[in-house]
């Protein structure tokens, strides 16, 4: 059948494409890319039934959408795209290198210094870089991305957030006049941090195993044998709960207010994501467990 393609921004016609009867939205995108506009690779397109309508999913078939011969479809240019994986790698590599650089007390940051960081600052440097090394490894070997790309401008926003916040926190903890907290604060913080990191990793592995390779299948996550995963009985996104816990305990370990600001900013963003995912789970699965909250057990 023949479909007319118009641009969603100006409703200008781009041309016509020929499709088979059982074609999906993905096929439409491929045809637009190959026959109409070479710059508009499939990930860069959003296809809609109306100029300002909802974006159609790739796997939806034209038949189920009631699109017939001679119909019109609108395509929106989402702008240059970059893969999630590359964004993750760039945004996590920054914190690793920036923190370790500031840890050396460079002249550029503190002026000329002869002293070296104490025990707490050194342990904090190990914790911080360990966390981001873990994230880089997870990005390479654990995470499965259900959506391939995001707009390129997100790269600058995300990197700005992580790199600058790292510089800000590292500046305070590695400062030559830094005051370490009492042993109690230090050990409570360190223990909590390590436990939360293990919990976070456990959840990421569980989520990876939930989705068979190469598919977009979605299932309700439930605790497996790992005791860390029992947090799934209370919240939909325990990986975020653990991540927030990590930074809260990191703040206790270093007794550094700027680290607390980082924890608070991270919590806000993760709470927004968690509430969204929680809502999607409930919408998608009618039998979704009732007792679960989004990110904080019993509270939020």
């Amino acid at each position: 059948m023949e479909i007319e393609i118009l641009s969603a921004s100006g409703s200008k016609p781009l041309g016509k494409i020929q499709l088979k009867e059982d074609a999906t939205v993905q096929d439409v995108k491929d045809k637009i890319y190959r026959n109409l506009k070479k710059s508009l690779y499939p990930d860069r397109q959003a296809v809609k039934l109306e100029a300002k309508g909802k974006t159609l999913k790739d796997e939806e078939s034209l038949k189920s959408l009631n699109v017939q011969n001679g119909a019109k479809l609108y395509v929106k240019d989402l702008g240059p795209q970059i893969s999630w994986k590359n964004v993750f790698l760039a945004e996590y590599a920054g914190p690793l290198f920036v923190y370790l650089w500031v840890y050396q007390r460079p002249w550029l940051v503190y002026g000329s210094q002869s002293s070296s960081p104490g025990t707490v600052a050194s342990v904090a440097a190990i914790c911080w870089s360990g966390h981001y090394a873990k994230r880089l490894l997870e990005t390479l070997f654990v995470h499965r991305f259900s959506h391939g790309t995001m707009p390129l401008r997100n790269l600058f926003r995300n990197c700005g957030y992580y790199w600058l916040f790292t510089l800000y926190v590292a500046y305070h903890i590695n400062h030559p006049l830094y005051t370490p907290p009492s042993d109690t604060w230090f050990y409570v913080g360190l223990t909590g941090f390590v436990l939360c990191e293990l919990g976070n990793l456990s959840i990421h592995i569980l989520l990876k195993n939930l989705r068979p390779p190469g598919t977009k299948v979605r299932r309700i996550p439930v605790p497996d044998g790992n005791p860390f995963s029992s947090l799934f009985n209370f919240v939909s996104c325990p990986n975020y709960t653990y991540e927030f816990g990590s930074w809260l305990f990191f703040t206790i370990m270093t007794k550094c207010a700027p680290a607390g600001l980082f924890a608070a900013a991270g919590f806000y963003q993760m709470a927004v994501w968690a509430i969204g995912k929680h809502r999607n789970y409930k919408k998608e699965f009618p039998d979704y467990p009732k007792g679960r909250k989004a990110i904080l057990p019993f509270i939020l």
Binding site: H172, I173, H175, Y178, T179, T254, K255, C256, A257, P258
Partner: peptide, 9 residues
């Protein structure tokens, strides 16, 4: 300014 208990400047 530094130093202070909460390491905030």
């Amino acid at each position: 300014s530094f130093p202070n208990e909460w390491n905030f400047a």
